[in-house]
Nucleic acid binder design. Sequence first.
DNA 1: GGGCCTGATTGACGAAAATCAAGGATGGAT
DNA 2: ATCCATCCTTGATTTTCGTCAATCAGGCCC
Lengths: 257, 257
Amino acid sequence: MPMRDTELERVRALPLFAECSDETFRNVTGGAFLQRFPAGTTLLLEGDQVDFLYVLLDGLVELEGTWNDKETTLSVLRPVSTFILAAVVLDADGLMSARTIERSDILMLSGEAIRRAMREDASFGIAVAQELAGCYRGLVRTLKNQKLRGGLERLANYLITQRLRLGGDPTFTLPHEKRVLASLLGMTPENLSRAFATLADYGVEVNGPQVTIARPVVLERLAKPDPLIDNHQPVSGGPTGKAQRERWPRPASSKVA
Amino acid sequence: MPMRDTELERVRALPLFAECSDETFRNVTGGAFLQRFPAGTTLLLEGDQVDFLYVLLDGLVELEGTWNDKETTLSVLRPVSTFILAAVVLDADGLMSARTIERSDILMLSGEAIRRAMREDASFGIAVAQELAGCYRGLVRTLKNQKLRGGLERLANYLITQRLRLGGDPTFTLPHEKRVLASLLGMTPENLSRAFATLADYGVEVNGPQVTIARPVVLERLAKPDPLIDNHQPVSGGPTGKAQRERWPRPASSKVA
DNA sequence: GGGCCTGATTGACGAAAATCAAGGATGGAT
DNA sequence: ATCCATCCTTGATTTTCGTCAATCAGGCCC
């Protein structure tokens, strides 16, 4: 698949690459592959050597972990996102599998080139550190969410967050199957169904993938959202990295040159 | 408290600082505080602005998260470790509280100095990125452990890991109160007690803080340890960072200059 | 339309975990 | 030594969650 300029520009606009030199960007994207994968494709199996930094340009990707024949969804990525950066930086095995949920356009950048670029372009090294810091904080939020809240509360907060991220409209569409949502929230599909049913008492109406939050105040009293767990930053127009999401609402007081 | 050279050397030996220039190291440690805190001191409250990178030189520190009057232990740190690096890098609020479990000697490095050092010393920026990548992977492991395993399995694997880290002896001592362990493993103290009782059938003998694993094979059959969740790297002599722990057993093929 | 596959829902049941309550051990202080 | 506080343990109970099974709805192919 040919890599067009429009695609390159979207990658360039990512915070991870926004500040680096043109030369660095050329070096990193020079030998890159842009590939289109059908839905359900396993891009990377946990335990595999990681040779590429992946950039999701279009579609939907699920990161999942496995143990003892059980699997759990650790994250669902939407464009434009990079993934498995940590494994690339350390040249280590991947700890999660990655698979496409929808047909996806994915850019694959050589891991070795990334590591070389970190050495040659200091500002790129900083950008990597900031992106990883953002990813780290996202996981801290996820872990607190998982350990401190029950299933019903996790779902309620998910819906509140989702509504805000999708523009604030009371009615919105779930971005993927409920089974995936259940796994992401750490529950079984059956329990997710029951949780949705319970939320009817709190003004949540469900119609297939359509959800409307009729009484946000009532739902929030149940959910008790917390800025130290839930990141309610709305999705701005352009591509954002994990780091930017974590900086909000304090807009980068000490912007790194 | 005066900062002695021996303390500085231990910090210098951390992977985070091992590769940076003498000048960078001086800049970062120049205005640093070394302070001794009694047990039970809250060093940092979640939501607080983070002004320092903390380095635990001696003692024991707990990182915890709170929501809705519940709290959970996210990590227990032993010397020599740095913490809240991610918040420092992004100049953001802390997502976790930090408190001493034992009396602890803690070095506090100016966050602003750390961020400046990243800009001025490329190799330091890389070291920060690697350390954060290691922290990230540690959290991925924790999350998989939490979502995929039950309480009994988490305890079993904790014991197996702990034994290896403390030298491999069948008998070892828990590093802190069981209540903290329970919170770390995501269960109540009551359930931890019961889990210990159950593990008696698998050859685990408990006597206060002393644990002996009499039949490792039997315990492992229950625990099903997995290198993609459990990091069994033994504690080497010198100070290690989160990044190094994640590189093992592959010893840093592409060492960054 | 008729079958068929997949995903979602619902109910019944059992396992796991939290909660409530009561003892027991330990170590420190007086 | 006695008292007391803290931590740990144990039991009884409730709640939550997972599992098994059946049913239902929608999409798709023939």
